[in-house]
């Protein structure tokens, strides 16, 4: 199963894509994608209901968040009321250690994203302040990365035996599916996704020459 684990809709301040248009795009362009996760910036969208779009387009659409920490940006899967009560998602300086711990305590999963980017990625902060206990998975393929940023992320994962995910980080319709995550076992909800990711039954993939390729 292939899921894009990092995307933004118009719910995010800089998102310009409507979710229905993501679905239309995936189908019109015959992208080999089974669904995507909306990871809105600094908030959790508990209002939008995408079940009718899931049915219409035969796609899995899940909701998560991208929060901002002292070690860069972090995707949080499995956001629930307990976690939102424990963390102020609107802050731009959440301690990563706390995000990891609170996520684990609330049955959620925190994954540092685009770690190779300056300032908003984990690698630069590790150089000055060291590794953070509790990180087990990182995003090694990000569709918005430049230059060597994804290679830097992959090297970090390999050095520390982190599991890897991938996501497009799309903010406009046509960028969905630039990168994705291959799951060994199909999932149909957030709980199952977290189980698969925690077990490491996942790999970051990019679409090249008509197939999903893992750069690992």
């Amino acid at each position: 199963m292939i899921l894009d684990l990092h995307s933004h809709s118009i719910v995010s301040d800089d998102g310009r894509a409507k979710v229905e248009n993501y679905c239309q795009w995936i189908r019109r362009k015959a992208l080999s994608l089974d669904g995507f996760v909306l990871t809105e910036h600094r908030l959790y969208d508990d209002e939008s209901d995408y079940r009718s779009l899931e049915d219409e387009f035969g796609l899995l659409i899940l909701k998560a968040s991208e929060v901002e920490t002292d070690y860069g940006h972090v995707l949080v899967f499995g956001v629930n009321e307990d976690l939102r009560a424990a963390l102020d998602f609107s802050r731009v300086d959440l301690p990563l250690q706390e995000v990891l711990a609170q996520a684990q305590g609330c049955g959620a999963l925190a994954i540092p994203c685009h770690p190779g980017r300056t300032r908003v990625g984990m690698c630069a902060h590790i150089e000055t302040r060291g590794l953070v206990e509790g990180v087990r998975i990182i995003e090694t393929l990000n569709g918005g990365s430049r230059g060597e940023e994804n290679a830097t992320a992959l090297a970090l994962a390999q050095e520390n035996n982190y599991h890897s995910t991938g996501g497009s980080d799309s903010h406009i319709v046509s960028h969905i599916g630039r990168c994705a995550t291959r799951l060994a076992t199909p999932v149909s909800n957030m709980d199952d996704l977290i189980t698969e990711l925690e077990a490491g039954r996942c790999e970051a993939v990019v679409w090249e020459s008509e197939e999903w390729i893992s750069p690992n």
Binding site: R16, A17, K18, N21, Q24, W25, G144, R146, G147, H171, I172, V173, S174, H175
Partner: peptide, 28 residues
């Protein structure tokens, strides 16, 4: 990326990319 048959409007994604294919300017 979107069409409105009633208003006869379309929405477009627009990008300006460098030689390496990196998106430098993004728009709709």
């Amino acid at each position: 990326t979107d069409m409105d048959d009633e208003k006869r409007t379309v929405e477009l994604d627009l990008t300006l990319s460098n030689e390496e294919g990196e998106t430098r300017v993004l728009g709709t």
